[in-house]
Design a protein around this nucleic acid. Sequence first.
DNA 1: CCAGACGTTGTT
DNA 2: GTCTGG
DNA 3: CCAGACGTTGTT
DNA 4: GTCTGG
Length: 256
Amino acid sequence: MCYFTSKPYESALKEFFISVAYNIEEWQLGAYFPANIESGFSHKLMAVTTAEKPHTVGTAIWGLVPHWARTSDEAKQIADMTLNAVGEEIFNKPSYKNYVGSNRCLVWVDGFYEWQHLEYKVPGKGSRMRTEKEKRTHFIYMPGQQPFALGGVYSLWERPDNGHIYHTVSIITTAANTLMAEIHNSKQRMPFVVQRDDWEHWLSPLQREEIQAMIRPLPDGILQAHPVMKVNPRDLELYNNPQVKEPYAYPDRGLF
DNA sequence: CCAGACGTTGTT
DNA sequence: GTCTGG
DNA sequence: CCAGACGTTGTT
DNA sequence: GTCTGG
């Protein structure tokens, strides 16, 4: 899964944030920049809101680093694996269990990407048919591309050699709903979307059972999606370029 | 006990 | 074909 | 994810 | 830090 964040949060967040005490320029986010350009593995900054500062948007490094990471190298290695947290297992995993009770957050995005794996038959040698494979990138978003919140869990990691505190975050995943199962068909998962009416609830103190019950697929009929162009991760022309979320028509190949 | 992992998706 | 780096 | 590399000796 | 596997 691949997320990006961008500037339109400001307007959408007004409803929720009584006093918005953030400087959007400080986010250093790659607006209009699918995460796979910088790659999730570069541990980009995400826009997050926590219960501690419920009326602000801060940043956290994508890839949760638990407190027991001893070195920067170890932290990076762990963060490579903690971009997402499987919601069903989050209370069992050493990396998350200490945080999901107290350190839940909202991760602001205006959409995310998934890749659809397609196969179709084309004429091969002689009378044989051969299977071709294609991957199509899809952009998934709310109506009007309104910003929305994904459920996350965060940790503060103190780097031992210099004492710096790093805010790090994982995005929680859950089973795919119908739309997402069609798109993200190789692994039927989707990010846990926190609906607007649940934003405050998700950040409030909750019992384990309540938390677990909240982490479920978004009902069908809310998210929208369309195919978008493939992105060369090194194509800097696409940095901050809205093209990466505009509809793109893949050639019709008579799929079956 | 001690050493080593600690994670997810098909890259996010 | 498969791995790596961005 | 996608693009690009993918190898060795120390010169032939 | 805490759990698991040997």
